[in-house]
Write a protein that binds this DNA or RNA. Sequence first.
DNA 1: ACCTGAACACCGTTCAAGT
DNA 2: ACCTGAACACCGTTCAAGT
Lengths: 203, 203
Amino acid sequence: MARLADPDLAVRRRQQILDAAEACFRRRGFHQATMQEICAEARISPGALYRYFDSKADIIAAISEEKRRDAEEEFRKLMVERTFIDSLIAVARKFLAKHSDSEAGSLLCDIASEAARDSILAQRLFGIQEGSVASLAEAVAVAQARGEIDPALAPMEVARMLMTFFDGISVRAAFKIEPHETILHQFRVVAERYLAPTTRAPT
Amino acid sequence: MARLADPDLAVRRRQQILDAAEACFRRRGFHQATMQEICAEARISPGALYRYFDSKADIIAAISEEKRRDAEEEFRKLMVERTFIDSLIAVARKFLAKHSDSEAGSLLCDIASEAARDSILAQRLFGIQEGSVASLAEAVAVAQARGEIDPALAPMEVARMLMTFFDGISVRAAFKIEPHETILHQFRVVAERYLAPTTRAPT
DNA sequence: ACCTGAACACCGTTCAAGT
DNA sequence: ACCTGAACACCGTTCAAGT
């Protein structure tokens, strides 16, 4: 990528390309969409595009980061009001809708498989997801103070496990076979039993 | 794919191609590996290869099915002896090792993203995974009889949730950042609390 | 400085020609 | 019947030439 004179133009052009690329990916998937299509959608020539992104993979990386950031915001917004579990299910429901709606279901899978082969991308994405985990952990701590979650559980570990679950749900959603409400109901059972303040009878 | 005279040769050729393809995918990933490489590895010409598989995606589908079948066998083998939870952790450990070892970590992600875009493949893979879920559910039922798992839980639902978790763990493993034992420890906590026969105090 | 678009190397796939 | 390998259409990327 070349040095740029007008940073403002650069920012605009990048966004213009990213928007076009996302539209194309959404329609045809990561690997099916061609650079020609992206260029046409962005109304820009291939040569110009390569001034702003090193490669197709670079565009993928940038969009992945955007997505992860969006997800983090989603978390922050939903993790207030209601009980913790209800918020959690609401987040999961949004997640499912997003991942099976249209052809975008494969996005997380594509991103993960890209990250598996590119450790620099993996680090970047992991860093961003840590943001989500941290804000989720905060919500856990608050819920613990409210007595909704067992105080014996470590908030960060809970947050990480819930995030792992979300990833699993995304994979399942990609198959588009089971009804969402079935998955959500099962998830609620897991979450309730996992998180409940157990005043278990002594063994 | 053309009609074939000698079904035995066909079977041999298909396996020969699948073995070569898997070696290539393992080295370079699904989308990086080229048909030329696969042909070279299989010591066969492109024209010959296309007698046995319709497309690269078709090879991907066949390998995906193999992988899912292997996973099912793995489940059956491990889900005996020991306590249920210990078996589960052992399975998860094997899973993690397989998914982060070498460049094969992205395989499940690639498969899932392929399935998201191809509903016929999705159906085929889902059917195979149902086999794993069913045998896992059996193990759950046995553990319930032994008093290790709360009898109030529906075995099939538990099996499905645990499978969802495995998918999530695979995605996380693809990033190759966190130590496996950390993930496994957290997973154990979830499994124990989720499955434990709760003699909870009444609210 | 920024852009265009033909050109390049290479991909997955096909098909005329061999045995 | 089964195979070969050059050829085809098309991909991601580059770069000489324009403004």
